[in-house]
Design a protein around this nucleic acid. Structure first.
Lengths: 208, 208
DNA sequence: TATAAAATGGAACACTTGTACTAAGAACAT
DNA sequence: ATGTTCTTAGTACAAGTGTTCCATTTTATA
């Protein structure tokens, strides 16, 4: 955590900004920092803020009060919950409409979880995804796509069986191997013409 | 989303506050709202803000610029990542020290995921938790406790086998039933003296 | 030790932002 | 119509907040 080459005072200022923002949900002023760090002149704070700014350790918009921000700070993203995923039915695929439709449910995650990607969420219905280590009631985070790299966990629609399944996908000379996440289970092999990739799974969330 | 009994203009103001905060990471001023909502006097904004405040639809600290906040907003919590969980070793149990030790890794989640509870995180090592539908590399969210209600998913240390396992726990007249999350698998029955509850699992996160 | 560089103090100043006052238009019921 | 209430305008002022200047002290460097 401690950055070398950073004076004790500036370290304290950074920490204070962090804690203050955590507590109040808005950034501290120069004078807040002054009191919070036991300094005795706004000029001192000003000086350190300038240095921190120059070194990229804080962001701030001059002309905007209370605009000090710590970079690399996680932000909250609103992930639309577009419906359910079950074995017997194709998954909802987002249109440009559904992305911004505020009327639907959303779950709020940090971008650490979504990895900064544009994702949507589906609630798992039923126990058919057990072999992907996904339980009834879990939430899966999907990235819309029609293609995938080898090894990606994808939601595929198997045309002949008329069912959707979550598996790791591998292209193998003329056929496709679908490998369950549970390593104790066997893969299935299908004809490429028989599979339709509906999205890539980038995460699973289970709340108990 | 749309609150009934809320004038069109005030609705727009709420929406603007939300969007502005999302974009800038700090709250709008009266004059920001003025421009953003195509109004033409600060007094109008002021008036609507007063009404919204009175109705509890916004929070703000008079005397603090840019302090307008929307209530019910998710906030980010820093969950300490205290170590790993594997079959063969007891899990790290947090002390009051480790909670605030900033040197350790943390993951940042919304309180929607942690359900507002005080939790810590463990990284799963190995495939021994497969029957709990938990894979190698998953992150489990734990709540420290020595007791549990029937049906809770807990981390228990089995003294005779010297291993930790994640199961649903049920007290049954003189014995304890440990039920795997995977319903296809059978429960095990153990002597109460043989189990030591190390924590309650309140969530699982998998990133692919 | 001598010198430069960095950090600190105190205070004034300028800009940002919230608030109050007044007046006028719009909606609405009597 | 008439009055009441809600909304919109324009403006001025007060308070919060960032910035600058200069002097002083402390720390680092040769």
């Amino acid at each position: 955590m401690r950055k070398p080459g950073l004076s004790e005072t500036r370290q304290r200022i950074l920490q204070f900004i962090h804690d203050f923002a955590d507590e109040h949900r808005y950034a501290p002023t120069v004078r807040d920092i002054l009191k919070g760090c036991n300094l005795s002149s706004t000029a001192v704070v000003q000086h350190h803020l300038n240095v921190l700014d120059r070194e990229g350790l804080i962001d701030r918009d001059p002309k905007v009060f209370r605009s000090i921000q710590l970079p690399n700070r996680r932000s909250i993203v609103h992930v639309p919950l577009l419906g359910t995923i079950a074995a017997g039915e194709p998954i909802p695929v987002p249109s440009s409409d559904t992305w911004r439709d505020e009327a639907d449910d959303t779950i709020e995650l940090t971008d650490e979880i979504t990895q900064g990607k544009q994702v949507y969420a589906l609630k798992v219905k039923g126990s058919s995804m057990i072999d992907a280590l996904i339980d009834d009631g879990d939430t899966v985070l999907m990235q819309p796509t029609n293609s995938a790299d080898n090894g990606d966990m994808v939601a595929v629609w198997l045309k002949d069986r008329e069912e959707v399944t979550l598996k790791r996908l591998f292209q193998e000379h003329g056929r496709i191997r679908l490998q369950p996440a549970n390593c104790q289970m066997s893969p299935i092999f299908v004809d490429p013409a028989n599979v339709e990739i509906q999205g890539k799974v980038i995460g699973v969330i289970r709340q108990l």
